[in-house]
Each structure stands twice: as structure tokens, then as C-alpha cells.
Design a protein around this nucleic acid. Sequence first.
DNA 1: ATGCAAATTGACACCGGTGTCAATTTGCAT
DNA 2: ATGCAAATTGACACCGGTGTCAATTTGCAT
Lengths: 340, 340
Amino acid sequence: MSSVTINDVARHAGVSKKTVSRVINNEINVSEETRTKVMAVIHQLGFKRNPLGMALAKNRSLFIALLADNPSPGYLQKLQKGILQCCSEEHMGLFLYDCNYRSPTLVYEIEEFIDNTLADGLILVPPLSDKQELLDMLQRKRVRYIRIGPKDQDSDDCVSFNGVKAAYEMTQYLLRLHHKDIAFVLGHPDQESSHRCERGFRNAIADAGIALNEQLLVQGYYTHQSGVDAAATLLNRTPRPTAILAANDEMAVGVLYEAHRRGIKIPEELSVCGIDDISLTTKVWPNLTSMRQPINAIGYRAAFKLIKKLKGEVAASNDSGADIFDCELIVRESTSQPGR
Amino acid sequence: MSSVTINDVARHAGVSKKTVSRVINNEINVSEETRTKVMAVIHQLGFKRNPLGMALAKNRSLFIALLADNPSPGYLQKLQKGILQCCSEEHMGLFLYDCNYRSPTLVYEIEEFIDNTLADGLILVPPLSDKQELLDMLQRKRVRYIRIGPKDQDSDDCVSFNGVKAAYEMTQYLLRLHHKDIAFVLGHPDQESSHRCERGFRNAIADAGIALNEQLLVQGYYTHQSGVDAAATLLNRTPRPTAILAANDEMAVGVLYEAHRRGIKIPEELSVCGIDDISLTTKVWPNLTSMRQPINAIGYRAAFKLIKKLKGEVAASNDSGADIFDCELIVRESTSQPGR
DNA sequence: ATGCAAATTGACACCGGTGTCAATTTGCAT
DNA sequence: ATGCAAATTGACACCGGTGTCAATTTGCAT
């Protein structure tokens, strides 16, 4: 390897290594003259700080990790992309860890993961972000975290998405198309986002002055298969709903499948739409109408907040950027007026 | 934090910290008595070695990273899953890095990533695994790597998939169904796997004694859109092929889309199949017939080999497990005899 | 009991950084 | 020129481990 160390720089610049350390860390008490001289040597020698040495001395690795156990691979993938982009810009490594939300030893496993990597910042994806037992452990270990879309929106460690509005507007859109029997496939009951969507859906129906038929609400779990199952239930009802809105795209694609299997024409005989706008929406036929959630931006934002937090640059007044992201209706091929 | 250090253990056990270090590292020259005593203290105190201290002293972080820029998200996702499982078992952290294969500064960016994380082992996914310039840099930096599915199969740092056989057998399957006009959508010309599949396809056609119509080979790039485009070209030809085999599922799903858009019934009027068996195959309608590549196992195997390599336990005679994985035909709903 | 090689153990320096605190230098008022 | 506070700098110890090498202990033949 023979990489350049802080000692090499110190020797070449004729200063102590502590002074070089000061320059690297942008500390204030360094004369302009010294700073310039040291910077010149740093560039000349191509010095790069060894993150391990720093981590050991500071007792902070500055490594961050993404903890996930999410049933929608497309969602996770986009989130990951956004996070990675931020990490890349900030010269930060991202560890990945696959959890099993249902594991009885989940918290212990995560603790072990942290001990193995010394990650000192975590990004938590639902449903992990709502697990109090996990949050307690992290607090105890002084591991920082940012939660994606969790329950209480008021705290400063969250980045989330306006799920109520997303479902509300999507339902409004279907109502505008003159659909009356609109069914809704719920997400996983453990995840707050599912309840938010449900609220949006109910509000929209109520605001339109329609009495909601509770039969049209079916439990799902955010997985493809649960979408298929929910569709099977709904498509057996009489009268059959003319539109099905699923709480995420993964399930909406499941609905699409079951409808196709029964020979139901989409969108002529059934409108189908989802929420999230994952890449799957433009792969299936017909392309799925969805409510875009800026997943990339959410991931980027979460990573950004976490990194700033770790670096101590506490997101202050100059911290532009909201932590609750808005949605956008993307009309594609899977929705139309009923009976056409 | 106040974690237990090697010094604490040494004090409690009444030995030097070097001896504790010997016990931790399973070195031979430690008396049974001492080893037992130290182990007891380790368990009693809940000591865990600090990986950063070790990394600094040994100049080896034992961190590994997955470098990827693959056009099929489903493929990457499965691979990632397999890798993570192995990492978890081996108590190893996995860094993630998104590359842009087309970036002119790719190698430099990767070098910077390594400097930032000090990863000393890498898993390279196609098309990265064939980039000689990158391999040279890694060699120079003494960074170990395992390549997934690269060009030269003879070297010991590869884990790959029998693409020739996969395409050969899939084509045979279509021939058995009495298809005559079988089209093939090629993968990205920069990736060896594409050429392997092409060879398999050509061999199968030749072995069946059929003169291949070169018009039925269309260039793709492993992406969904390239599958759509290839299908558009193929479905305009007269006579129209009765079956389309794509070099990966991502493209096959694109073919499916284009066929649906044109109102072509699948599989009655057109059989479609792919290679890889990613999760997408069971989400689209109809479910896609595919040649299963044990992507999970490949990922696991790659991580396993890399970790053993880093830990110095050079995969020797006791290293069971092949490095070229075999395929398996998974017949689903998208293929049938022509004209039915 | 003695001698000797082999096995076991520990002292010390080091990996590449940072924190503390004292020493030195600077800049300004007098 | 002198005095003094503030700014700048460096010596040293330390973060949590491992490598080297010499010192000590053990086990066995004599």
C-alpha cells in the first residue's frame, strides 16, 4: 500500500502532525500561512486521511448503514439509490444490513451488526422505524439514526411522505373519472404509512358525500401476493368494484395480475392504481397509474440529515429542504372512466 | 459507550493483552489453561474485539464491498441478498457502491471509494467484472476481489453461471414445443454473458438441424426498454416469430409488454421466455417461463470465497462447492405450443 | 538435580490518527 | 522597549488492537 500518512505530511511541511490534523479538520487556530503550506504538501503528496485512524481516535467511525426489511423491492431499490448518491457525494461508506422484522432476536442481531461494523449512524426503513425496542437500544448505544416514514412526524429524526394526501388525491382522481365503487387494498397494519393512506382514502370518499361500503376495504400486507389475494376477494364481490386503489404499487401489480387472469380488461372493465411509483409501474402491462413518492429524494434527504448529524453540523437555519415530501399523480394506462 | 477492551480482559485474567490477542485470534502457542481462563473472562465481560483497532494494526479492514452497475434491478437484488446472508453469517459488514459503468472517471471514483472506506475486498458484478483497467487498479492497490460471471472462467477469482447451457436448453425446450421461428434478443455486447447465451442459442438451433435466420437475432442491452424495442422490431417481421427468447428476464418482460400492447395473445400467439428467474417473472401476467440462475447462491458463494480469501483460509481441498452454477428450467404461463 | 530445546508469555513499539495542556509566538497598548 | 492577553504550535499520551523479539517457563532426556 505505502499510503501517505499524516506524519509524512508533517515532515515535508516542517510542522507537527497535530498541526496537520488541525488543517485537515478545518480547525480555526491555524495561521493562514501554515494552512496554505500544509495544504500544498497535502496535495503534492496526495495525502488522504485514513478513516480508521480517525475513527479509532475519535471513537466515531462515521460509517452509516441502511437497515431494511421492506416487502417492496422496488421501493427499497429506489431508496437505496438516493441514499447512495448522497453517500457518494459526502465520501461516506454505506453498510447494508438485511433484517427480518419477524425475528424474535431482531434487536440483538442489529446490536451485533453494529458491534461488527461500528456504524455510528443508521437509516431505518419501515417497519423498522416504528419499533420502539430497537430505538431504545440505539439510544443506549448512542447510535444516531434517521427514520423513514415513522409514526410521530414531529421529531427531528424523521423523513417521510405525505401518505394521507397521496391516497386522498388518488381517490379524488378516481372520483373525477366517475367511479363509484372504489375499493382500497390496505397496507401492513404494523406500518403507519398504511393507516395514513387509509385515512386519505376515507376522507376523500367522505368529502365526496359518498357512504363508504366497508366491504370495499380489504387487508393487504404491501406484498405482491397480498395484492393478488385482495383482488381475488374484491373481484368476487357483486357488484364488482370498478376501480381498485392499492396502498402501494407492489400490491397494485398483484391486483393487475389477478384481473388479467380472470380475463378482465384493464382499464376498460377495471381501473387499477397504486402509490409509490416504483420502476415496476412502467414494466407491467398496462403501465400503472400511480402517485409518485419522491423515493430517491427521500433517501437522499435521510442520508444527508444523518451525515450532517454525525459531522456535528447540526441542521440549522441554513438547512433548506423539507422533511415531509409531497406526492404527484402520474396517470398512465391502467385507469380510465368506468365501463369504457 | 464504555465497551470492554482487550486491556480489561487482560487485567481481569491476569495476563498480558498480547496473550488475550492470541486467544482471540486462535493462535497456537497458548496453553490450554490460559486459553480457558481468558475465554471465561471474555464471556463474563462480554468482550468483543473492536474491528477498527484490528484493522489499523493489521492494515486490513476485512470490510468488503459490492460494486454494481447492472441494468437488471431484480438480478442485483437477489445477488445482494445472497451476499448479505453470507456476510451476516461471517459477521462481516458489506459496503455498497453504485457505479456508473459509462463514467470516464469510473476507475478513479472506485479508487476514491476504496480510500474512503478502506474496503479490502470487492465483489464485482458484470459489466464491471470484465473491465481490465479496473482490475489493474485493484491489483496495484492490493485489493482482493471476486468477479461474478466474467470472461475467463479458468481463474480462481470468479463465480459464474453456465449461460451457454441455459440458452441451449431453453431453446431446446421451445423446439420441443414445435416452434420453428424462434427469435433471440441479445444482451449487452460488452458483457460476456450475452455472448455465452448467444452461443447456446446458436448451438441449439444448429443441433436441431435448422438453418438460423439471422434476422431473428436482435440486439438488446439487458434493459427493459431494450426488450420493448427488440420486440417492436421482431413483431413487425413477416413471418412473425412464434417464440421470443430474451437473454435476461428484464428484457423478456419488455417483450411481454410490447406484445400486449399490440394485442398479441400470450402464449397462444407468441411464446415469451427469459433467463435469470428474477422475482419479476412471477409478478407480470402471464408469469414468465425462465431459466433459473441460482443468483442467491452465486452471491453467497462469491461473498464466501472473498471472505475466506481475506481471512487467509485459502480455499483448499476442503473447499466444497463449485464456482460455476447450473441452470434449471422453470416453466410458467408464457410459453406453449405455437398456434394454440 | 541438571541441561536444553520447545512452548509459553510479556514488554515494547507501532498502526494513523486526535485530545489535552503547556510552551512559544504574535500583536497590540502602554 | 516592555508587558500582557490572545493566537498559534507541539510534546505527549491515547484510541484498541497486533508484530517482534527477548524473557520466562515447561517438559523431557540425562
